[in-house]
């Protein structure tokens, strides 16, 4: 059992504070949805925890099984077990999915340890079958010319291959039609429930994703921090009442 503790996190871009005191603890196997209007710092939170160099953590801490990750580079955090599913994944022309994932898997091996190519491809193809991804996909350049749905499926494939302990999923539903959303959600759900079930921080705008990836906890973010927590019914309430409700209730606070 693993634990990701986000403790009173303050994040700035340059001199501008974006997140002002975010606290949340996630255990492996749990899905925590964080909802909130645009500009409230949800994406900033995910990227900063993953180690994006443009974001400065000015105070607070992020502990993975009791160990702070803040001094680690992004790649160290990933190898320690964090995974960021990007809202807008970068396209990398000239680098095939197969080579990219191979490098990521290789990076997790010890010094002088070589990747078993046969086992790697066997595993990759099994994951692709699960996500209903055509095998020809592996020779395509990473995200280059991909549709929105293909990009998100590619993110989930990476998550499936890298088996993180905690996944930060940033607006995974954006840009997806309902069919693509279902495939992506199925891919995430397939990774839940087992012994290696990751803890998931699911950042979203809309309730509809939560119909497919059912959360254990829902948190409403407003003005850079969590203002209300509940179970999945909170998402439905939010959907019914709109963010104005949150605004009225918490703007004064």
């Amino acid at each position: 059992m693993s634990c990701l503790e986000i403790q009173n996190l303050h994040i700035s871009i340059g001199d501008k504070p974006i997140v002002k005191g975010f606290t949340l603890t996630i255990a492996s196997g749990e899905v925590h949805a964080v909802m909130g209007p645009n500009g409230t710092g949800k994406s900033t939170l995910a990227k900063a925890i993953a180690g994006h160099p443009d974001y400065t953590i000015t105070s607070g801490d992020v502990l993975l099984d009791g160990r702070s990750v803040l001094a680690m580079e992004a790649d160290e955090r990933a190898r320690a077990g964090l995974f960021l599913a990007f809202q807008y994944p970068s396209d990398i022309p000239g680098v095939s999915i197969a080579n990219f994932l191979r490098a990521a898997v290789q990076a997790r091996l010890g010094e002088g340890e070589d990747l078993d190519a046969t086992a790697y491809y066997k595993r990759l193809y099994a994951k692709m079958d699960l996500l209903k991804i055509d095998r020809k996909f592996t020779s395509r350049s990473v995200n280059d010319g991909f549709s929105g749905g293909e990009k998100k499926r590619c993110e989930i494939l990476q998550m499936a291959m890298l088996e993180p302990r905690f996944a930060l999923m940033d607006e995974t539903d954006s840009g997806l039609d309902i069919d693509a959303l279902r495939i992506v959600a199925d891919g995430v759900n397939a990774q839940r429930g087992g012994a290696n079930s990751p803890g998931i921080l699911l950042i979203t705008h809309y309730q509809r994703l939560l119909d497919h990836i059912v959360p254990d906890h829902v948190h409403v973010m407003w003005d850079s921090r969590i203002v209300k927590s509940g179970d999945k019914s909170l998402a439905l309430e939010l959907e019914a009442k709109g963010y104005d409700w949150v605004k009225k209730e918490f703007a004064a606070a």
């Binding site: 970068s90 022309p93 680098v95 990521a104």
Partner: peptide
């Protein structure tokens, strides 16, 4: 952005830069 994307997958910076250079050469 590309460098961070690769690093966020656990690929160390030097290996990420090598991979991106090969991407540049692939054309």
């Amino acid at each position: 952005g590309q460098e961070f994307y690769l690093q966020s997958r656990g690929i160390p910076k030097a290996a990420a830069d090598e991979l991106l250079t090969f991407g540049f050469f692939e054309e």
